[in-house]
Every structure is written in C-alpha cells, then in structure tokens.
Design a binder for these strands. Sequence first.
DNA 1: ACCAGGATAATCT
DNA 2: GATTATCCTGGTA
Length: 203
Amino acid sequence: MKKLQWDFYSKDTLSVAQNLLGKILVHEINGKRLSGRIVETEAYRGITDKAAHSYGGRRTNRTEIMYGTPGFSYVYMIYGMYYCFNIVTEKEDIPEAVLIRALEPLESLDKISLNRYNKSFSSLNKAQIKNLANGPGKLCNALAIGKSENKVDLCNGSLYVAKDDINDFNIKSAKRIGISYAQEAANYPWRFYIENNIYVSAK
DNA sequence: ACCAGGATAATCT
DNA sequence: GATTATCCTGGTA
C-alpha cells in the first residue's frame, strides 16, 4: 500500500475531502499497523468559512500549520478531552484542511479496542464495535493520535493515508456537525460520507 | 429510541 | 472569562 503524496493533498479542499473517502488511515506504532478506512470527512475552507479556525485569516500558534504545506497533520484538542485529526490541503498561505470524522476499523483491532475501551476486541458487542471510530474524537483515541501527531508530514512518516483502489461506493454530502455558531456557513453541505456505511457518525 | 446535561482544559479575547 | 470542528451517561418513553 502506497502513501498518498503531496500532489494528492495540494488540491481544492472540497475535492480532497471527497477523494479521501475509501482510503486507509494508518498509524504505525512499534511496527504494528493500526488502520481504518476513511468513511466520513468534512471540508474547512479557511478565510471565508466562518466555521474554520482560520476564518478571516486568523493566524495564531494553533492555526499556523494550516497556512503551511499540504499533506501535514493538524491535531487540536477540543472540549478539554478529545483530539480532532485534520489534514492540511491547498497550498502554502491558503489555510484550509479536511477533518477526518469516521473510520471503519481494519487492522490491529485488538489494539484499537484496548485504546478505546481497555477491553479485548472479542469481548465487544455490536454497538461497541460500531462505536470504535465513528467520530473525530473516537478515531483519535482508537489510532492513538494525540498532540505528538500534530504538525507531522503525512507523506513521510509513521502516520499516513494509504491509497486503496476501491470505488464501489456512493458519496453523500450533508451539513457539517457541531458548528451551529457559524451562521450561514453552518448550512454548507461540506460533510462527505460513504452511503450506507455503518461506521458513519450521522446520516 | 430519544433527548438533556455534564465532563474538562487548551485556546483565544 | 468565554468558547468549543465531542462523547457518554442517565433520564423518560
């Protein structure tokens, strides 16, 4: 499986958000591959997007990475207890990113289950399996993504997105989640997900 | 099934 | 001091 490279991420954010669906997010830890298929994403379109951290050109320590090279990670803490994992898109000085919202767990299921519930995968019920990574905070927990994974190069390291040639799914779009403060931007259909996939966080 | 409310701290103003 | 790109629990039905 090949790591997606710079050219994949250096496109307009709405395209990258859709193109990421079906790809595999991989975190290699001590030679073990923790991975899941990306089934839900959201686009955050920088300067003109009231829901984006970089809205209006806001440039702080936290958002600085969004102004940098595409293909880097942007991980931030939210609500004091969860991390969200984003991938920087576009080009330098255009502060846009894609939030990864949900994964279908694929490899190292036991490790993923331990990270989430401190239980072995075989002891999980159906609901617990579904809830392993169907949300931005959950998937960070599942794949052990935290602040040390902020600002890393996804084209060259132990955290990356791998190409996968599956195409047999439909893409649906919908309003983004958790941004009701963002006025008209709250209604933009910039959330994308794989139709009928049970690991999507919301319909 | 479906709410309502609370946990909890980094970040920004 | 206010806000927050979330998740879980415990109530009612």
